[in-house]
Amino acid sequence: MLRNREIQLFLLTMSFISLAGIIAAAFFSIAASMLVFVISVLLIGCSFIFTSWRYREIEKLSGYLQQISSGDYFLDVRDNHEGELSILKNNIYKVTTMLSEQGSLLQQDKVHLTNAISDISHQLKTPLTSMMMMADLLSDAKLPPVKRREFTHNITIQLERIEWLVSSLLKLSKIDAGTVQFKKEAIAVKKLLQKSLEPLLIPLDIKEQAISIEGDDTVSFVGDFHWTTEAVINILKNCIEHTPAGGEITISFAENALFTEIVIADNGKGIVKEDLPYIFKRFYKGKNASEDSVGIGLAMAHTIITSQNGNIEVKSKQNKGTQFRITFYKQVI
C-alpha cells in the first residue's frame, strides 16, 4: 500500500498540515501544541487504518476477478453492508452470474452442435455408401443395361434425398439462428391448404387416397404464407406416408376470437404411444417410420409453427389414425 504514490502524497500532505498546526499552536502554549499533535496522530492513524482496510478489500475483489477469469464463476461476493465496496461486490456478483449463464448456454450450444453434426453425418453416410457401391458396379463394362439403368435410377433417388435433407437443414439452421424474418400478413387458410396440396397431388393419386377439406372461406390468421405452407406440406406428407392405399385424409379449420385452428387427420396405422413425445424431435424415427424417413419433416413443421406464435399437438392411436391440431393465436393488444 505504501508503495502507492497516491498514498505517499496523502500521508505527506497530512503530515505537513499536522506540522503546520503544531507550530501554529506552539505560539499559544505547549499544551495546545501537544493537543494538536495528539489529534493529528490519531487522525493520520485512523486514515491509515481505514485506507489499509479498503486496500485489503480491493485485493480480495482482485482475487475474485482472477478466479472468474480462470473460469470459476461460482463465487458469491455479495455483501449485506452499505457502502461503495458493497455495491461493487454486488455488481461483480451480477456480472459473475451473467457470465456463468452465458457459459452454460455456450456449452449447451456446443453439445447441440455436436449432436447435430453427428446426426447429419449418420443421415448422409447411408446414401453415400449406397451410391459409392452402385458407382463402383457401374464402372463394370459387362454390367447389363437393365442393371445399369436400375443403379442410375437409385443413385438419382439418393441424390434427391440428400438434396432435400441439406435444404431442410439449411432452412432449420436459418430459423435457429434467427436470420429468418417471418412475415406478418393475413393468410386465408383455404388458399394455404390448396397451395400445400399442389406438390402432393401425385402421391395422393398413386395411393388412391381421398382428401376432404371443410371450413369457411373467410377463416384466416396472421403469419408467413411461404413458411407456413412448408410446415403444412411436411405434415401432409407424414399423413400420406402412414395412410394405406385407399385411405382418407381430412382437413378442417375454424376461427374464433382467440385463435385460428387447423386440424389434419388420417385413418392410417397411427403412431406408437411411446413415440408420441418425440415425433417433433429432429432425426427421431418412430417404430412405424419408413426406411426412407430421416425424421426431420415434422421437426421443421414444429419449428416453423411455434416461431409464429403458434402451437402444434398430435393425438394418435395405433391402427386408428393420427390427428395434428395446429393453433395460431391472435395477438391481443
Results as ranks from 00 to 15, higher is better:
C239T: 12
E255I: 02
R161Q: 07
F221R: 09
I262Y: 07
V232D: 14
D224M: 15
L197K: 04
N238D: 11
E291H: 08
V222R: 01
A254L: 06
K190P: 07
S220D: 01
S173H: 04
I202Q: 05
F253P: 01
E255H: 00
I271D: 09
A257N: 14
L192C: 10
Q158K: 12
I213Q: 10
K183I: 13
G246E: 02
I162D: 04
V294M: 06
F221T: 06
E248D: 08
E274C: 12
V180S: 07
H226E: 12
K237L: 01
L170E: 11
I213H: 08
E160P: 00
S196D: 09
F259W: 06
D205Y: 00
N288H: 11
P244L: 04
L204H: 02
T218S: 13
D205E: 11
G247Q: 00
H242N: 07
E255P: 00
A245T: 02
I233M: 04
G295F: 09
K285N: 06
F280D: 04
F225S: 10
K269F: 15
A289N: 08
A265Y: 07
D216H: 07
K287M: 14
I187Y: 07
D224Y: 13
P203N: 03
A245F: 01
D205P: 00
E248H: 05
F259V: 04
P244V: 08
